[in-house]
Structure formats: structure tokens, C-alpha cells
């Protein structure tokens, strides 16, 4: 599919799915179960609002979601207590598939959610969305309910419905624009049609999710896009404009570490038949600098993008889902 055609056909605005009665009826007609997963680590300030609002609007008022779950990485604040008080199903990541051990990272929680949650579609939302609205969730599941060929829906933000006309810059954050988009343009030009490939909000069908391996750190979104693209092509993706997202801003140093992890994931995926077999062994040490008085200090970060295998390869998962061994 030509990326321009894809952009026209598979790019939505959340308002296209605002008729929730119709969406719920269609979900029920297809016999789908929907799960919403919020991975957390010390999010007590925002988690209550997110759970309360989504549960009120998308479980109580319109029964679109069958479960709202928090998968927590061992928060030291009141995240789990607050989430439970507002009615979320709360799980500690370490308690899910304990025989596989525990890794620290958002990808770990996303991966374990596939095992723990029951939905045929899982929506992942970050926990730090200050301006959370129901459309953050229904805007992502809408294309999956209405378009059977779509497997994976990404969010993008900040394209107002009303504007002064003409063109204006649009796209992702700093890491997207100076790292991911150039990389995709070089190696996977089709994927450059995604406006915000690193957005932390997306909805995926289970049969796709369970076949994906999961980097547990920064590279999880990049890995998903590359793997789904290789397996199903650009037609498997859609993207939904969720208007505006207010969240914490990250420092340049944090973004540098993120970029390092993403590069590890990207390059490791280029190797098997990807044309980059000749790459040397990748180092796992990122070096950054900080100034103290008149001296510069070298700060070293050891960043290794460990990966979890496709969930469907785990015997425990196959047993839980009633799949043959």
C-alpha cells in the first residue's frame, strides 16, 4: 500500500468513534472482549483520575471495556492503593508469571498484561496523562472494532479540528523527529507514515500481541512497529488523532538514554536478514556529561534492551488460553 493512501485511509480522528452506543453494539455483535491496561511506576498523582474517569465513562456509562487493569512495577508510593480505590484491577508485575522472573521496565508490564488480562483487544495507556478523556481509549479501539484488517492502532496528538488553514509542522517528539523518523525513512520508509511512532498509547489485537517479542525498556514501541510491519505490512496499522495530551516533559538527558535504548532495539532487529549483518557487537554503555563547577564529569549509563519472548511461546500462557501445547 502506498503510504499516502494509507495515511488517507487509516488515519482517524477520535470523533469518528464518539457514538459509543454504536461502538458498544458493534463490539457485542462481534463478541469481543476489551481490556484496558495502564502500566505504572509511582503514579499516585494521576492514576486515580485516569481510572475513575475511564471506568465511569467506558465501563459504567457505556460498557465498552470489560476490564481496566493496572500492572505495577513495584511503586513505592500509593499508586496501587489509589488505583484499587477507584475500582481498577491491580496487579504487581512480579506476581504475574513469577517463574519467568522480574525485569524492570514498562515493556515488562505490557508483556505480562497479555497473560493476565482477558481481552481480545488490549489498549495500553500511560498513567501520566493529565488531561485524560474517554476518547483516549475509544479512539484507539474504534478502528479495531470497525476495520477487521487493522491489527495495531497508534495514537498521535495535537492536530486541532479547527484551525486557520494552510500547513503547519506536525509530528512526534524530539526522539521521533531526530532519530526514529530518519531511521524509518532510511530502512522502513512505509513506517515513516506513522505520525507519532513512539506514542505510549496504542491498541492491539491479542492474536498480534501474543506473537510479538517485547523489549522491556525503551525499545518496545519501535520493536512492535518493525515486527508487525514485517509480518503484516502497513495495512495492519491505523493511527488516531487524540487531539492534545498533557504530560510530564522529559529532560534531554532522559531522551538521550531513550534514544540509546531504541537504537539498540532497532539495530538488533536489522540483523536477521535486515541487511546489517556486518554491524559490530553493540556496546551497552551510554556516556553523558555533566558539569560540576569548572569540571566536566562523565556519567555512564549501562542500558541493555532485554527482550521477553512472544507470549504464545510460553507453555503457561498456552495452557491459560486453552491452546494446544
Amino acid at each position: 500500500m502506498d503510504p499516502r493512501d494509507w495515511l488517507a485511509r487509516n488515519t482517524f480522528h477520535h470523533s469518528a468513534f464518539q457514538d459509543l452506543r454504536r461502538l458498544v453494539a458493534e463490539k457485542e455483535r462481534q463478541g469481543l472482549r476489551l481490556s484496558l491496561c495502564i502500566p505504572t511506576l509511582n503514579e499516585e498523582k494521576t492514576i486515580g483520575k485516569e481510572i475513575m474517569l475511564l471506568r465511569a465513562e467506558l465501563v459504567s456509562r457505556y460498557p465498552l471495556f470489560d476490564e481496566i487493569a493496572v500492572i505495577d512495577s513495584g511503586s513505592s508510593d500509593r499508586t496501587r492503593e489509589v488505583a484499587a480505590a477507584f475500582g481498577a484491577d491491580v496487579y504487581e508485575s512480579a506476581d504475574i508469571l513469577p517463574e519467568t522472573g522480574t525485569r524492570r521496565g514498562k515493556g515488562e508490564n505490557l508483556w505480562k498484561a497479555i497473560y493476565q488480562l482477558a481481552g481480545d483487544i488490549i489498549v495500553y495507556l500511560d498513567a501520566d496523562i493529565k488531561n485524560i478523556r474517554p476518547h483516549f481509549a475509544y479512539g484507539l479501539v474504534g478502528p479495531l472494532i470497525e476495520r477487521p484488517e487493522v491489527r495495531y492502532v497508534k495514537a498521535f496528538y495535537d492536530r486541532p479540528l479547527a484551525g486557520a488553514g494552510g500547513t503547519r509542522p506536525s509530528g512526534g517528539g524530539r526522539v521521533t523527529e531526530i532519530l526514529i523518523r530518519p531511521l524509518f525513512s532510511l530502512f522502513f520508509p512505509d513506517l515513516a507514515a506513522l505520525i507519532q511512532p513512539l506514542s505510549g498509547e496504542y491498541a492491539v489485537r491479542r492474536e498480534t500481541l501474543e506473537r510479538l517479542s517485547f523489549p522491556i525498556g525503551y525499545g518496545v514501541e519501535t520493536a512492535h512497529l518493525m515486527d508487525v510491519y514485517r509480518a503484516h505490512g502497513l495495512e495492519a496499522f491505523a493511527q488516531t488523532d487524540l487531539d492534545r495530551r498533557v504530560h510530564r516533559n522529559q529532560s534531554t538527558g532522559d531522551l538521550g538514554r531513550m534514544a540509546f535504548g531504541i537504537l539498540q532495539t532497532f539495530l538488533s532487529r536489522l540483523r536477521p536478514g535486515g541487511g546489517a549483518e556486518a554491524l559490530p557487537e553493540l556496546h551497552a554503555m551510554l556516556r553523558q556529561f555533566q558539569a560540576r563547577d569548572n569540571a566536566y564529569e562523565l556519567v555512564e549509563h549501562h542500558i541493555v534492551e532485554e527482550e521477553r519472548p512472544p507470549m504464545i511461546d510460553l507453555p503457561a500462557y498456552r495452557q491459560r488460553r486453552g491452546l494446544p501445547p
Binding site: 474517569l53 465511569a56 465513562e57 488531561n131 478523556r133
Partner: peptide, 13 residues
């Protein structure tokens, strides 16, 4: 309660 609070948040914002 949650429907009331959701209304309050969405209206207030």
C-alpha cells in the same frame, strides 16, 4: 460516585 466525579472533572476542565 464515579459518574459524578467524571462529570465534575470533565466539566471543570
Amino acid at each position: 460516585r464515579d459518574l459524578l466525579l467524571a462529570n465534575a472533572v470533565m466539566i471543570g476542565e
